[in-house]
């Protein structure tokens, strides 16, 4: 059987011994080539889960295996094969887009780095921006640069934290379309955390619903809509977030 992109086993994180767990016994197996959505309200444990998957955060219990590598013992081997993008973690603002991409091409030991940068710039419409300082770009341009950084090493697994946050609908749609094409072309596995339900519905073939650190439901967007008898994922999300009993839901 092919090793999964991500295998989380009873993953638990407590920031303090006396505090409730931020993530509580979370287990899932995300297959290669899939796009999964991590949904949940603020404080549901999405960021903590992603941080543990990235090895930024040591779990209090349980185990994470990424692309076959145990993150407790062999995280650097996994990190070389994956990448991450978040609007909440910036790229150095004073250096140019090309310099930023060059830095990460070196950090990820990308062969033929300059060729890769030119290729990514063309794909993500960044060619005209390569010499501009990253801090002088618009939100949409910064998102595209962050995406280029996340793709510089041709990752087999991409973790995206709110990839279209603060983007206008047109740019957000462009990014979603681009991610769809990228996955189709490369077979890259994608795990994204998002508050944009339409985005999750469009991009994800499986959704993991988190509440207070635990997975409360999961399934394909279509299956969840059918299960909750709703027309869109936003309503499903609200049902779960507000703990509405299923019998109170519309038929």
């Amino acid at each position: 059987m092919e090793t999964p992109a991500i295998l989380a086993e009873a993953l638990t994180k407590r920031y303090r011994p006396d505090a409730p767990p931020a993530v509580d016994m979370l287990s899932f197996r995300m297959p290669r080539g899939a796009t999964w959505g991590l949904l949940g309200g603020n404080g549901a444990g999405k960021t903590t889960t992603i941080a543990m998957l990235l090895g930024l955060l040591v779990p209090s219990g349980g185990r994470v295996t990424v692309l076959g590598h145990d993150m407790a013992r062999d995280r650097f081997a996994a990190l070389a094969r994956m990448n991450f993008s978040s609007p909440y973690i910036a790229l150095p603002a004073r250096i140019s887009v090309a310099e930023n991409l060059r830095v990460y091409a070196h950090l990820y030991d990308v062969p033929q780095a300059e060729k890769r940068i030119v290729e990514l710039a063309a794909q993500l419409q960044l060619t005209e921006l390569l010499d501009r300082p990253a801090g002088e770009l618009s939100a949409g341009q910064k998102t595209r640069v962050a995406l280029a950084k996340a793709l510089v090493n041709r990752p087999e697994l991409l973790l995206l934290d709110e990839p279209t946050a603060s983007l206008d609908p047109d740019t957000g749609d462009w990014v979603r379309g681009w991610l769809e094409r990228y996955r189709a072309e490369t077979g890259c596995s994608i795990l994204l955390a998002s508050h944009n339900m339409a985005e999750v519905e469009r991009l994800c073939d499986h959704v993991l619903m988190l509440k207070q650190g635990s997975a409360v439901d999961e399934g394909s967007p279509a299956a969840l809509l059918a299960k909750y008898g709703r027309d869109d994922l936003e309503q499903v999300f609200l049902d779960i977030a507000r703990g509405r009993p299923r019998e109170a839901m519309p038929a």
Binding site: L56, A90, L91, P92, D109
Partner: peptide, 18 residues
């Protein structure tokens, strides 16, 4: 500190840089 000021540490620490 430059990495802290530029809020770039998160990217550095999730790269393969030991």
């Amino acid at each position: 500190l430059e990495e802290i000021w530029s809020r770039n540490l998160g990217h550095i620490f999730v790269s393969p840089l030991r």
